[in-house]
Design a protein around this nucleic acid. Structure first.
Length: 356
DNA sequence: AACCCGGGGGA
DNA sequence: TCCCCAGGGTT
């Protein structure tokens, strides 16, 4: 490191070492009893890290238990069908994670076991810089600093990093602080301690500086002018409106459903056609009030339109046109559907059945 | 570097 | 409403 770099920093290695020791002591008494920490395994750690990508711990816990029950080992996961994995993942979002997890399980089994270092993990589908560092440090004891959203927040505030954390210079600065903090003797506990600190104390709004174990070396401690603007991030576009219509062609207890394309929103999940039946003898009618469903980058205004077909044959003809499938409601429920569908499912079904 | 990809919870 | 969450992949 050059002399100029050192002078621009408002923290030094001694501060980082103090913070590390203080944090370790704090973590000993504040670590949460998360399920994957009780009987640690590479498989359980891997599952948790994939599920917790952009997902809150409290949201991930039930799914982690479900996967442990349905797919107790990486071999079980690899042998399961993609449909089974997607159904288990239903509702958790970012469905590509489930497919990449499944693909990675097959790779792991074909190679006879889990990777033995960070580089090996990084090569697996769905494993990036953060997840590889997390698994390697927690599961293999490799001395690497894992940087997630919590760490970005803690490090930017503590070290006074004002460059956007998602810019090249900002990311390098964050990595520099995280590396300086790293406890190479117990990197797994250390990385989890930093994240725990970010989740429990150094929260996005109203951080609890009075309870913070590293406040004595922190650039932003008790300084709202600092912590309120850190971490800085490049601005994101607001969600665009998406007017979506699902056409539910139904007859008796059967409907026409489609599997969505393998790219784009809700890839490979099941849904209803967005086109209206072309030659139905009966008029279409809205089944339920329009639904507003917010995604990160799309604000969906969904209209559910039903068409009562006059026969099962007509249902099949329409299914062929849209490359769909005729299924009973019960058969539909065995597939993985977007949250938009599951949250109105019972009303949708009732409205269709009432229209027959 | 910018964009895409879900869904939910807290302020 | 807005922001953020144990991010990764694609362009």
């Amino acid at each position: 490191m050059s002399k100029g770099d050192f002078l621009q920093k408002n923290w030094c290695q001694t501060d980082a070492e103090r913070a590390r020791r203080s944090l370790a002591k704090w973590y000993d008494s504040h670590a949460r009893d998360l399920p994957w920490r009780l009987t640690p395994s590479l498989y359980g750690t891997w599952l948790s890290e994939i599920m917790l990508q952009q997902t809150r711990v409290d949201t991930g816990i039930p799914k982690w238990h479900l996967f442990q029950e349905l797919f107790p080992s990486v071999e079980d996961l690899a042998q399961a069908s993609e449909a089974e994995v997607m159904k288990a993942w239903e509702g958790l979002g970012y469905y590509r994670r489930a497919r990449l997890l499944h693909q990675a399980a097959k790779v792991v089994v074909s190679k006879g076991g889990f990777p033995e270092n960070r580089e090996g993990w990084l090569a697996l589908p769905g494993i990036g810089p953060y997840t590889s560092a997390a698994i390697a440090s927690i599961g293999l004891g490799e001395a690497v600093a894992a940087v997630d959203g919590n760490v970005q927040r803690v490090m930017s505030r503590w070290g006074g990093v004002t460059d956007p954390v998602d810019s090249k210079t900002g990311a390098q600065a964050i990595q520099g602080v995280a590396d300086a903090w790293l406890d190479a003797a117990r990197p797994g506990d250390h990385n989890q301690a930093v994240m725990e600190l970010g989740a429990l104390v150094c929260s996005p709004k109203q951080p609890r500086c009075a309870e913070c174990p590293v406040r004595f070396t922190c650039t932003s401690a008790d300084n709202p002018d600092m912590w309120s603007v850190l971490p800085r991030k490049t601005p994101k576009r607001k969600a665009a409106r998406w007017d979506l219509t699902w056409h539910v062609a139904h007859h008796g207890n059967q409907v026409v459903a489609i599997q969505r394309p393998d790219t784009g929103v809700w890839a490979t999940l099941w849904a209803f056609p967005e086109r209206a039946p072309s030659k139905s003898n009966t008029p279409s009618r809205p089944l339920i009030p329009d639904v507003v469903h917010a995604l990160t980058h799309k604000r969906i205004h969904a209209r559910m339109v039903g068409t009562a077909m006059t026969s099962t044959e007509e249902l099949h003809t329409w299914a062929q046109e849209v490359n769909g499938v005729v299924m009973t409601w019960e058969e539909c429920e065995a597939k993985a559907w977007p949250r938009l569908a599951t949250k109105v499912w019972s009303e949708l079904k009732a409205a269709c059945m009432a229209g027959n």
